[in-house]
Amino acid sequence: MPDDVGMTVAVQLFPTCIGDVVAQQTVTDTERVLDALGIDHQRPSGTTCCGQPAFNSGHDSPARSVAKATLKALDDGSDLPILVPSGSCASMVRLHWRELFHGTPEAEAATRIARRVRELSSFLAEHTDALRDLEPSLAVRVGYHDSCHMLRELRIKEAPREVLQTVAGLELVELDSSERCCGFGGTFSGRYPDVSVAMADTKIDDMVAAKVDVLVSSDPGCLMQLAGRMSRQGTPVRAVHVATLMAEALA
């Protein structure tokens, strides 16, 4: 790992719609971690949603009009990395915007932005030395959930684990089902709630069997699903974003 502290001095932060509505804590915690690392950050004004809910439902036209608003807000003429604290939104912008905007006046900007977008944990993984210097510490047993789009589209698997392992006292457990879908699936969770919940349950059973205190993921969608089900069931496992765990460890 090259010592690149100070290499990145400023970033843009795209909170995503889920960060604006449900997972505000994730966004604030991301900012706290960036603050601790001394990295300047700002939320560009005017971002909305990446368009994924409509795109993945097959409705390209509404997806495009919503994504266009975000595209305009993010295309600020700078080369700053755009951090996204959500694996599937990062995947949407990085990999699918080019397809979504293909043949439109925004095609070029979409490519430009796709190149700048970084999934948060993969960005933080480049700053593990700096993180370690800050002596994060938290005595917890943690299981990690690989979100599908981050794992199988962005092919990011080790980065969030490397970030978690900077925390003193943290014990990272590999769950048998770490790569299995949690059942969220965007609109799937509402179309087929019983199947969706059953899918969450198999993951939760696994976490309980592994006796983890905290389940960490890098995708607020998966966390909404797993935390929501565990809350309903009274499962004594917290489900938090990697940014939240790091913020707590650095506090």
Partner: peptide, 26 residues
């Protein structure tokens, strides 16, 4: 910090899940 009520718009979500909106108090 938890929505568990069966509100009309959230019915298909909250039938089997809560919606955790704040940090859970524990």
């Amino acid at each position: 910090g938890v929505v568990s009520a069966k509100t009309p718009l959230l019915r298909r979500w909250t039938a089997g899940r809560d919606l955790v909106v704040g940090r859970r108090a524990r």
